[in-house]
Write a protein that binds this DNA or RNA. Structure first.
Length: 419
RNA sequence: GGAGGGGUAGUCAAGAGGUCUAAGACAACGGUUUGCUAAACCGUCGAUGGGUUCAUAGCUCAUCCGCGGGUUCAAAUCCCGCCCCCUCCGCCA
């Protein structure tokens, strides 16, 4: 949620920056309603002041045993006018809320403008592996090694659900434990939250109302299966006011995530590339506005460290305005290379949402004793999601004899060196 | 799922239609004094929105007593619906 004051103060400037994300965005309607809102508030508050004064006077009269029926009759008229204005005001407020809830965050000035392809590669680690043989894709490897079973998963649940079996399941659990422990040792407080969230939680994180079709919804209980732990963690301190010295507050969560992924899939998104259910380690930070951009950079570094320890080649990219999630001001992705597809795929997306989610969740901090509360900045980043990470390990670590080399840091947990 | 009890500002807590303009205490902050891991005394001390303003300073008006409605000239207080917590009962992979 953007600050309506910001829109009022600099409508042209804000609109121009929002248009770099979506050229169809117009602020005129919101600003018109906002003006209407202000004038209604002005009149209703004057009437309420009148009513309050009158009601007190009635109290005095009754206590003194005087007749107040004339005053009561006139106050009745005042109350009726208040009720009229109030119903118009709530119509306008809900209209403003609706329009505001659809607006995206203002992109940070350092974000490249334009389409997805305008993203900027910031750095990389390692290089694309060279194979002296024809590489298999992770799907073929998974089938051959009997560690992935999409056919039976489809029977149990449906298409695009994963099933890890045998060493595949061991590898998955080892990755989760390795990443969870890594971040916990790095100062992130470990947390396993509920995997389902209510509609308010998903609104705060900004998955709702825009992406309702992409989330699994349990209608009977009005609960949503989390599409990312971000949608839960953004609510961890809803309605709270931090002391300044508590920030930055860092969390690492493990959740299984669920996405309907409504829409079409391409041939290059088979196997583990895009699925309805996956495990993810998610980092989340609450920070002051002064801290947040340094914390974003550190968040990316903390996620990169996972891939370095696993010895996987990756690159880091700064996303362009049109590729940002609604709540994000700036997003940096980490992408791993899948040799069978000769393509890079996102395994981590690290974003600074500034005060966009904090405003919805009313999460603030007090910048010193006696100072007024300010909204915190929230940051989230995968650290990382497992499916593409596993695909990367299977494809990048295949050897001429067909075996898969398990990264050293996982070997002890799995009890094997090769698959 | 059922019965009962509860939800008041950072914490505890009074208040049961009309100076509630939400008491009081604790914590916190500022000061005075004594003099030293501290006490006593004085003062300040919730949030949001509107107006005024350079001001996120003051002043002022409005709103907020779990959330949402309703009754009334007037609601923390009465009525209806919902949420959460506690105790007990039922059901149960």
């Amino acid at each position: 949620m953007l600050d309506i004051h910001r829109l009022r103060e600099d409508p042209m400037g804000i609109e121009k920056r929002l248009k770099t994300r979506d050229s169809s965005i117009e602020l005129e309607e919101i600003l018109t309603f906002d003006q209407k809102r202000l004038s209604l508030i002005h009149s209703i508050e004057q009437l309420k002041a009148e009513r309050n004064r009158g009601a007190q006077e009635v109290g005095r009269c009754k206590k003194a045993g005087e007749d107040a029926s004339e005053l009561i009759a006139s106050l009745s008229g005042v109350s009726n006018r208040i009720a009229e204005i109030d119903s118009e005001l709530s119509r306008i407020l809900s209209r403003i809320d609706h329009l505001m809830s659809l607006l995206p965050n203002v992109p940070h000035p350092t974000v490249p403008i334009g389409v997805k392809e305008n993203k900027v590669t910031l750095r990389s680690f390692g290089k694309q592996p060279q194979f002296g043989f024809k590489v298999k894709d992770h799907l073929a490897i998974g089938e051959e090694k009997k560690i992935l079973d999409f056919r039976r998963a489809a029977m149990i649940a449906g298409t695009r659900f994963p099933m890890y079996i045998g060493l595949g399941a061991r590898l998955e659990m080892a990755l989760i434990q390795f990443m969870f422990a890594h971040h916990a040792e790095n100062g992130y407080t470990p947390v396993i939250p509920p995997f389902l969230g209510n509609s308010e939680s998903l609104y705060v994180s900004s998955q709702l109302p825009k992406f309702a079709d992409d989330i699994y919804h349990c209608e009977k209980d009005n609960l949503y299966l989390n599409p990312t732990a971000e949608s839960l963690l953004a609510n961890l301190h809803r309605g709270e006011i931090f002391d300044e010295d508590e920030l930055p507050k860092k969390y690492v969560a493990y959740t299984t995530c669920f996405r309907r992924e409504a829409g079409t899939y391409g041939r290059d998104e088979r196997g583990l590339i895009r699925i309805h259910q996956f495990n993810k380690i998610e980092m989340f930070k609450f920070a002051t506005p002064e801290q947040s951009y340094a914390e974003l950079d550190q968040l990316v570094v903390d996620a990169e460290e996972i891939l370095r320890k696993l010895g996987i080649h990756y690159r880091v990219a700064l996303l362009a305005t049109q590729d940002l999630a609604q709540q994000s001001s700036k997003t940096i992705d980490i992408e791993v290379y899948l040799p069978a597809q000769e393509r890079y795929y996102e395994v981590s997306s690290c974003s600074n949402c500034e005060d966009f989610q904090a405003r919805r969740g009313n999460t603030r901090y007090r910048p010193g004793t006696g100072k007024k509360p300010r909204y915190v900045h929230t940051l989230n980043g995968s650290g990382v999601a497992t499916p593409r990470l596993m695909a990367a390990i299977l494809e990048n670590n295949q050897m001429p004899d067909g075996r898969i080399h398990i990264p050293e840091v996982l070997q002890e947990m799995i009890g094997e060196e090769f698959i």
